[in-house]
């Protein structure tokens, strides 16, 4: 019988030390597209028509805006754009504390501004997460379970998944929140001790898109429970998830402000 432990030790260390050093593991990953309205031809609305989730919005007078909270990174707008106004990018670290920060272009404002609270300082070095699948396609679950693989090795950052909401500091929600999942989600939130944090993970959980509307969709977490960190992406890759958790814990800076991806 093979000595697994010996083989494991022989294989050596697989974990990256990202974000402090080492690779993030996302070579080649296409993130959410970049929009530069300065390159838009006059009154062009081609991208708005091509966008399957209405993330791109606007009209001939006001130009085009982009709500990254609805973007599923399908790259269709990039293929449609007649100029270089929309370009594919490797921008995936999209976590924001304020929902409004995901919106580029001033013509769309949210009915209810996103909440913005500081994570309690006692949580910053050790965080326990309760994950809830509120109707995802399982792409998000696949990337969340990747956080436990030897490459990302989430434990090295003092962040753990926990089975019970009673032990959890953070409720991490995926999926658009389907009708039958609404009550279980609210019950889990109610069962958590204070201070409790909430993360909307994946475009579905941020806005419901592309599973909003229809009889069995949902609108994500907006207006349902207070959200401390929003992370669009379809699905957000494991490095984006780590970035979001560290932004929440104030251990990494937020990169996106006013819908613009900074350095």
């Amino acid at each position: 019988m093979p000595l697994w432990t010996w083989f494991g030790l022989k294989a050596g260390k697989a974990a990256t030390a990202w974000p402090y050093s080492g690779p993030d593991g996302q070579d080649g990953v296409l993130g959410l597209p970049r929009l530069d309205p300065a390159h838009c031809p006059p009154s062009c609305q081609d991208c708005v028509a091509s966008c399957p989730t209405s993330a791109l919005f606007g009209n001939a007078e006001n130009g085009v805006g982009l709500d990254y909270g609805r973007c599923i990174a399908c790259q269709l707008c990039v293929e449609t754009c007649p100029t270089e106004a929309l370009q594919s990018s490797g921008d995936w670290a999209f976590a924001t504390r304020d929902r409004q920060d995901l919106i580029q272009g001033a013509t769309r404002t949210l009915a209810e501004p996103g909440t913005r609270r500081r994570a309690h300082s006692s949580l910053c070095k050790s965080l326990h997460i309760r994950h809830i699948d509120a109707g995802s396609c399982n792409g998000c679950e696949s990337e969340l379970s990747a956080l436990d693989n030897p490459f990302y090795n989430l434990h090295r950052l003092g962040i753990f998944f926990t089975p019970s909401p009673r032990f959890a500091d953070l409720l991490l929600v995926t999926g658009p929140v389907t009708h039958p999942m609404r009550d279980p989600l609210l019950a889990a939130y109610a069962a958590m001790p204070e201070p409790r944090l909430v993360m909307a993970s994946g475009t579905c959980a941020v806005s419901g898109a592309p599973m909003d509307g229809g009889y069995a969709g949902g609108q994500g977490l907006e207006g349902l429970i207070p959200v401390d960190i929003w992370l669009p992406g379809c699905p957000p890759n494991p490095a984006a998830l780590i970035h979001a958790l560290l932004v929440l814990l104030e251990r990494m800076p937020q990169r996106v402000h006013g819908g613009q991806y900074g350095t």
Binding site: A14, G25, Q26, D27, G28, V29, L30, Q75, S88, G139, S142, E143, S145, A146, D148, N149, P150, F151, Y152, P235, N237
Partner: peptide, 19 residues
Amino acid sequence: LLLEERVKQINARLTGSRF
């Protein structure tokens, strides 16, 4: 899980998407 991750990283380099 590590082998799965390595294949997903190859997927990303080939197509831009881990899936």
